[in-house]
Amino acid sequence: MRVTAFTQLITVLAVTALVFILPVQLVSFVLVVELVLLLYIRHDRMTMAAIGALAVFTGMMILLQLLFRSPLETALAGGLRMLVMTMAFLCLLAATKIQDIAQALVERFRLPCEYAFMLTTALRFVPDFLADSAVTLDAQSCRGYSNRGNVFKRMYSYLVVIKPLVMRAVAKSDTLALSMELKGFGANTYKNMKKQELGTGDYLMLTIVFLLSTYKFWVKYI
């Protein structure tokens, strides 16, 4: 059963709100669901690394809260909530193509197509940008630049790679703009895509989200 990007977006947005509404037990249950879901969709190295990074980050958050003398329980609950929230986005990214998310944003949320396009294009150029920055760093180190020394010195000297990279990005964006012109980018771009029609899966999912969101309301009557 497939769920469209629209429903997924709604769900993720709902989850970010739900973590504050639902009791901790339910939130932990959501976390388990998320983990199972994520590992079901993808279980490559990248996903594992992302989960690991999130876990470490959550741990740090909890420690930070403890440092500020929050009770242990609050700190743990806070960390859990944050983990559930970020994990939801991770699931979204793993399950859906960015292109579909962009389309849903334009179609259903009336996001201007330029912004949606920026979202996808920025992601498209990340690997290129990383490759370029590696070359720039190598080129500068061959001219005597060294990143040894203390953190501040290193941060400062890292500036040497920024300028060539920015200039390169500007040159690239000029070609990119021409290319978009040639390919007729405009309002039609997303309009003409195959519509993401809602199916049974979507309605089922949206119902669950609705029920959970109104949890506070109906729990009184049961």
Binding site: I98, Q99, F117, T175, L176, S179, F185, T189, N192
Partner: peptide, 19 residues
């Protein structure tokens, strides 16, 4: 490199067709 605007090969080729 700078003229490829999409994330996947299929999207790239269909881009101008859709437009």
């Amino acid at each position: 490199e700078s003229q490829l605007v999409s994330l996947t090969a299929g999207e790239e080729v269909s881009f101008s067709l859709l437009n």
